[in-house]
Amino acid sequence: MSAGRDPGLQPERTRLAWRRTLLALTVVTVLAVRLGSTGGPVGTLASGVAVLLWGAALVLCWSRGTGTGPARTGGRTLPLVAFGTVGLALLGALLVMSGLW
């Protein structure tokens, strides 16, 4: 290995961080679907949207968490996955408020 650089560890740690994030996203999606399953038609719709968001994030981020060699950094994936999280939060707020009426 050349001195001063660590080609292996940094990309590997970043891949593992992506995997942990996708795992957390999966847990949150399951919670959203569970909440939606008790909420009538609005709940069913919200559950569907949550699963779609989860699928989109998985397709988008899969390559970030797998493979070997140099990792890609940055790009549109980061804002997209963050706004997916915001979408899940808004869906959850919609579900909670629809339960009040």
Binding site: A24, L25, V28, L31, G92
Partner: peptide, 8 residues
């Protein structure tokens, strides 16, 4: 995500 999951 932990905060969103906590809310849900």
């Amino acid at each position: 995500l932990a905060l969103v999951g906590g809310g849900l």
